[in-house]
Design a protein around this nucleic acid. Structure first.
Length: 863
RNA sequence: GCGAGAGUGGCGAAAUGGGUAGACGCACUGGACUUAGGAUCCAGCUCUGGCAACAGAAUGGGAGUUCGACUCUCCCCUCUCGCACCA
C-alpha cells in the first residue's frame, strides 16, 4: 500500500488491471440471472461533460453493485454518431464528418476509461458504421413492405439555416431544436414511419410501466394526446359532391355551430373560394399565414383572424347556413384541419365571431341560469343542459355527446372517432451525415426498394459538403445514379435523403446484445437472453423523443416477429441536470469559475471588482459555468469525481456543483485511507465474527454499526438508488471507527471488529470508488478484484442496540428522555416515564388522561 | 391556460405504513498540534431569550384530523419543468 492516497497512481494501475483481466467482458449464461443496465449513449461531440460523468457514474455503481449481487451484468457503451454537429464541424474545420466523428470517439473513449467505468468495450458500437446502419436499412425495407414506412408529399417543418426538415418533436416552440431559428412550412416528398398506428397501444402501455417516473409517462401521454369525439360531415351549399369533414370533441354543441373554419393549408380552401369575389383575398391570406412565425410566443400574440371563402356549408342537424372561413387558428395538423365553430361554447370561436360579427347561438346552459347570446362576455365551456337543440333539448350535455353522435351515425353523416395529437414520424433528412434510405426512384417503375442483397447502401466517404451544409448526395452521380433493380433502366436515381438520427438510437440497445452479428439486426438468442433493458438511465430531455421512438421501434420489431416483447425498458431513471452558479463581473460580464478570486468576498481576478453570484443554472458554455471533467480527473482523480457526483444529491434531482464539496469528498477518501493504514498492521490475523461475544464498549458498537451500515447501504442502493444516503451511512461508520482509541493493545475479537468494519467499508464503497477500493482490497491481502467478491450481508439481530433511548413527551412535546434495555415492556416504560423527575414537574397536579407507549421509542403522557 | 413536480438551517441535503426535525457533508466559529498551515485532530454550529440550566418558536402560508403531523386531508402562495390556438 502506498503510504499516501495517490489517485493517479492507483487509478491507472487498476484500469490497466481490469482491462488485462477482461473483467467487464460478458456473455450469455443461461444459468445465471441477467441484468441489463444501460445509460443513454453519447453523441460524440468531442468531450465528455459533467452530465455524462454523472449519468455514467450512476449507471456504473448499479452495474458493479448488481454484479457483486451475482447478476450477469450487461453494461455496454457506444456512440450515437450520425448527426448535424459533425457536419457543422466539418464545414468549420474543413474536414470530413467521419474524421471528426472518429477522432471525437477516440478522445471520449479515453475519457470514459479514465473514469473507470465497467463497460464491456468489446461491444462498443458506432451508429455511423455501415455494419450498424446496414441493419437499419434492412429494417426500413421490412417496414416499407409492411406498410409501416411510406412516402407522401406534405408540409414539413423546414429549417433554412440547417437546410433540412425537422420532425415535430424537433421543433421547440416553433424554433429549430438545433439552431434555434424559426421554422417555416414547406411542401416536400418525405418518408414517414406510421407511428400513429401504435398511438393507442403506446398510450395504453404508459399505464404498464411501473418502473418509469410518472413524469415521463405523463409527458408521453400528453404528447400522444388522445381526444374522443366525433367526425361530422357538413355538405357544401351548391356543390353536391363536396362536403367538409370536421373533428370535434363537443358533438353536444353541434346545434350551436354557426360557421366553419378551415386551416389555410386545407385542400378545400382554393376550391371553395375559386370563382368567387373572395378568391384573391383568400389566396393572399393563405400566403401570408404560411410565412408567419409559428413560435409559441408569436402565436400567443396573434389575434384570431381569417377571411371568408365565399362558400357556405349546411349544418346537417338544423339546416343552418354556415359561412366557411379560413382562419389562422385552425391547424391542418390536427383532426381534419377543419373546425366547426360554436362561438357560444368555445373561447376562440367566440373571439372570432365577435370580430367578424358572426351569430352566437347558445345550446348549453348552466342549470340555474339563462344565457343570453347578446350579453355574453365569454364562451360558456362548462357542463349544462341542452337548449335550441331540437329533440335533444333538456338533455345533460354529457349525455348528449353520445346521443347526438349516435344520431349522426344513424343518419350516415358522422361517426364516433378518436383523434391523436401524435403525428407520423417524418424521418427524411436532406443531410449527408446519416444513414441512406435504401430506395430507388425509377422513371418507369416509380419507387423501388433496394434489394436486400445490395445492402448496405454505404454513405460515400469521398463526398464534400456543399455551401451551407447542403447534402452532396443528390449531385454525386457515383452515388445518386443507379440501375433500377426492377426493370434495369440505367438512369434510375437513388433516394438521397438520409434517416433522422433518432432512428439509430431507437434500436441500439438491441444491437448491443450481439454487436458483431452479421446475419441480421441482432442474434435472436442474445436478444432473448438480455432484453429488455432492466434499468435505463438518462436525461429527462429525452422523455418524449427518444423514449417514445424506442418504444415504437420495439413494437415494430415485435409486429415483424423479431422480438418477443413490447417494451424495451423495464425501469427508467431520469437523472437531474448538473448545475452551477453563474458569476458576473460588472466590467467583464460572465466569468469562468477560475476567473474568480475569493478574498473576503468573491472578486473578479481581472479587475478586482466584487462580482455578483447569480442563479444556479445548468452547466453550459454560454453561462461560463462549465466544469471540465478532465480538470477534476487531474486534480482529484476519478474516484473523488464519482463520489461527489453521487453524494451531492439523489440522482433524479439536479446537482449543484460545489468545489468545496469535491474537496470534502477527497478528504473523506484520504481519511479512510489513513484509517486503513493505521489499523491494518495492528489487526493481522483477524477473522470474521459470528456475533458480538467478547466485544465491549466502542468495539461492540462498531460491530453493530457495521451490520447496520450494510443494511442501510444495501437498501439505499438496491431499492432507491439513493447513493447520497448510502455514502452518508458509510461516513457514519467511519466516524465510529475513527472515534476508537488506538492507544491500547487490541484483543482478538476487537481486532476482528475493526477488520470487519474496514473490509465492509471497502466492499460497500467499491461500486462507488472502485479503484480506491481495489487498492485497499489488495492491501488487505485479497488476490482478486473486489468486483468479484460477493456483496456483504448483514445479520438483523446484530443491528439491534442493547439499550434504546426513550423520549418522554407531555401532550406531544418532548420533555425528557431515558435509556432502557431494548424491548423493555410497555408497562415498565410507562412507569419509568411517570416517575421521571422532570416529568413529574411538568405534570404537576394535572390529571393524567392517557399514556401512549411506543416500544423502543417514546412515551407520550396526555394531561 | 392545461399537466407534472418541488418548497426543511448560511448551503447541498436527511427523516414520509404519523412517533426525538436537521443524519451526512460543505461553510463558519473556537481550541489543540505546529516555524507555518489553506494539512490533521477536538469541540461548537436552526432561530429567539439566557452566563448557564433551560424556555419558547420553527419544515412556504392558513385551516383540519390525531395523544402526536415535514409526513395524512382541504384552501392559498411561490418556484421549476413539460405541453400549448388540439377544435
Amino acid at each position: 500500500m502506498e503510504s499516501r492516497y495517490q489517485p493517479k497512481v492507483i487509478e491507472a494501475k487498476w484500469q490497466n488491471q481490469w482491462e488485462t483481466d477482461h473483467l467487464f467482458k460478458v456473455e450469455e449464461r443461461p444459468d445465471q440471472e441477467k441484468y441489463y443496465l444501460l445509460e443513454m449513449f453519447p453523441y460524440p461531440s468531442g468531450k465528455i461533460h459533467m452530465g455524462h460523468v454523472r449519468n455514467y457514474t450512476i449507471g456504473d455503481v448499479v452495474a458493479r453493485y448488481k454484479r457483486m449481487r451475482g447478476f450477469n451484468v450487461l453494461h455496454p457503451m457506444g456512440w450515437d454518431a450520425f448527426g448535424m454537429p459533425a457536419e457543422n464541424a466539418a464545414i468549420k474545420n474543413n474536414t470530413h464528418p467521419a474524421k471528426w466523428t472518429y477522432e471525437n470517439i477516440a478522445a471520449m473513449r479515453e475519457q470514459l476509461k479514465r473514469m473507470g467505468f465497467s463497460y464491456d468495450w468489446d461491444r462498443e458500437i458506432a451508429t455511423c458504421k455501415p455494419e450498424y446502419y446496414r441493419w437499419e436499412q434492412w429494417l426500413f425495407l421490412q417496414m416499407a413492405r409492411n406498410g409501416m414506412a411510406y412516402r407522401k408529399e406534405s408540409y414539413v417543418n423546414w429549417c433554412d439555416p440547417c437546410q433540412t426538415v425537422l420532425a415535430n418533436e424537433q421543433v421547440e416552440a416553433g424554433l429549430c431544436w438545433r439552431c434555434g431559428k424559426p421554422v417555416r412550412q414547406k411542401k416536400l416528398w418525405q418518408w414517414f414511419f406510421k407511428i400513429t398506428d401504435f398511438a393507442e397501444d403506446l398510450l395504453v402501455h404508459c399505464d404498464l410501466l411501473p418502473g418509469w417516473p410518472d413524469k415521463v409517462t405523463t409527458m408521453q401521454r400528453n404528447w400522444i394526446g388522445k381526444s374522443q369525439g366525433a367526425e361530422i360531415r357538413f355538405p357544401v351549399e351548391g356543390k353536391d359532391n363536396l362536403s367538409i369533414s370536421v373533428f370535434t370533441t363537443r358533438p353536444d354543441t353541434l346545434f350551436g355551430a354557426t360557421f366553419m373554419c378551415l386551416a389555410p393549408e386545407h385542400p378545400l380552401v382554393p376550391a371553395l373560394s375559386a370563382e368567387t369575389e373572395h378568391a384573391a383575398d383568400v389566396a393572399a391570406f393563405v400566403d401570408r399565414i404560411a410565412l408567419q412565425d409559428r413560435s409559441a410566443k408569436a402565436v400567443e400574440n396573434y389575434e384570431k383572424e381569417g377571411v371568408f371563402t365565399g362558400a357556405y356549408c349546411i349544418n346537417p342537424v338544423n339546416g343552418r347556413r354556415m359561412p366557411v372561413y379560413t382562419a389562422n387558428f385552425a391547424l391542418m395538423e390536427y383532426g381534419t384541419g377543419a373546425v366547426m365553430s360554436v362561438p357560444a361554447h368555445d373561447q376562440r370561436d367566440f373571439d372570432f365571431a365577435w370580430k367578424y360579427d358572426l351569430p352566437v347561438v347558445v345550446v348549453v346552459t348552466p342549470p340555474a341560469e339563462i344565457l343570453d347570446s347578446a350579453t355574453m362576455e365569454e364562451a360558456y365551456t362548462d357542463d349544462g343542459i341542452l337548449v335550441n337543440s331540437g329533440d335533444f333539448d333538456g338533455m345533460k350535455n354529457r349525455e348528449a355527446m353520445g346521443a347526438i353522435t349516435d344520431f349522426l351515425e344513424k343518419k350516415g353523416i358522422g361517426k364516433k372517432t378518436v383523434s391523436f395529437r401524435l403525428r407520423d414520424w417524418g424521418i427524411s433528412r436532406q443531410r449527408y451525415w446519416g444513414a441512406p434510405i435504401p430506395m430507388i426512384h425509377c422513371p418507369d417503375c416509380g419507387v423501388v426498394p433496394v434489394p436486400e442483397a445490395d445492402l448496405p447502401i454505404v454513405l460515400p466517404e469521398d463526398a464534400d459538403l456543399l455551401d451551407g451544409g447542403r447534402s452532396p448526395l443528390p449531385v454525386l452521380e457515383a452515388f445518386a445514379k443507379t440501375r433500377c433493380p426492377s426493370c434495369g433502366r440505367e438512369d434510375a436515381r437513388r433516394e438521397t435523403d438520409t434517416m433522422d438520427t433518432f432512428v439509430e438510437s431507437s434500436w441500439y440497445f438491441e444491437r448491443y446484445c450481439s454487436p458483431h452479428w452479421d446475419k441480421g439486426m441482432f442474434d435472436p438468442s442474445a436478444v432473448d437472453y438480455w432484453m429488455p433493458v432492466d434499468q435505463y438511465i438518462g436525461g429527462v430531455e429525452h422523455a418524449i423523443l427518444h423514449l417514445l421512438y424506442s418504444r415504437y421501434f420495439t413494437r415494430v420489431l415485435e409486429t415483424l416477429g423479431l422480438v418477443k416483447f413490447k417494451e424495451p425498458f423495464t425501469r427508467l431513471l431520469t437523472q437531474g441536470m448538473v448545475c452551477k452558479e453563474t458569476i458576473t463581473c460588472p466590467e467583464h460580464g460572465l466569468l469562468f469559475p477560475d476567473q474568480v478570486a475569493y478574498h473576503e468576498t468573491p472578486v473578479c481576478s481581472l479587475c478586482a471588482q466584487p462580482v455578483t453570484v447569480g442563479r444556479v443554472e445548468k452547466m453550459s458554455k454560454s453561462k461560463n459555468n462549465v466544469i471540465d471533467p478532465n480538470v477534476l480527473l487531474d486534480q482529484y482523480g476519478a474516484d473523488t469525481t464519482r463520489l461527489f457526483c453521487l453524494f451531492a444529491a439523489p440522482p433524479e434531482r439536479d446537482l449543484e456543483w460545489n468545489d468545496q464539496g469535491v474537496d470534502g469528498c477527497y478528504r473523506f477518501l484520504q481519511r479512510v485511507w489513513r484509517l486503513a493504514e493505521k489499523w491494518l498492521p495492528r489487526i493481522t490475523g483477524w477473522a470474521p465474527l459470528t456475533d458480538s461475544t467478547g466485544l465491549g464498549g466502542p468495539f461492540k458498537e462498531l460491530y453493530r454499526k457495521t451490520h447496520e451500515t450494510i443494511k442501510r447501504v444495501t437498501q439505499d442502493i438496491d431499492e432507491r438508488f439513493h447513493f447520497n444516503t448510502a455514502i452518508s451511512a458509510v461516513m457514519e461508520l467511519i466516524n465510529v471507527l475513527s472515534a476508537i482509541d488506538d492507544a491500547a493493545e487490541l484483543k482478538n475479537p476487537e481486532k476482528s471488529a475493526v477488520g470487519f468494519s474496514l473490509e465492509t467499508t471497502t466492499l460497500l464503497l467499491s461500486p462507488i470508488v472502485p479503484h480506491f477500493c481495489d487498492e485497499l482490497w489488495e492491501t488487505m491481502g485479497h488476490q482478486q478484484s473486489i468486483l468479484c467478491s460477493p456483496w456483504p450481508t448483514h445479520t438483523e439481530s446484530a443491528t439491534v442496540r442493547d439499550e434504546m433511548e426513550v423520549v418522554i413527551q407531555v401532550n406531544g412535546k418532548l420533555r425528557s428522555r431515558f435509556s432502557a434495555p431494548t424491548d423493555t415492556d410497555e408497562e415498565t416504560l410507562k412507569k419509568t416515564a411517570l416517575s421521571d423527575e422532570r416529568i413529574i414537574g411538568f405534570i404537576a397536579d394535572q390529571p393524567v388522561r392517557k399514556v401512549i407507549v411506543v416500544k423502543n421509542k417514546l412515551v407520550n403522557i396526555v394531561v
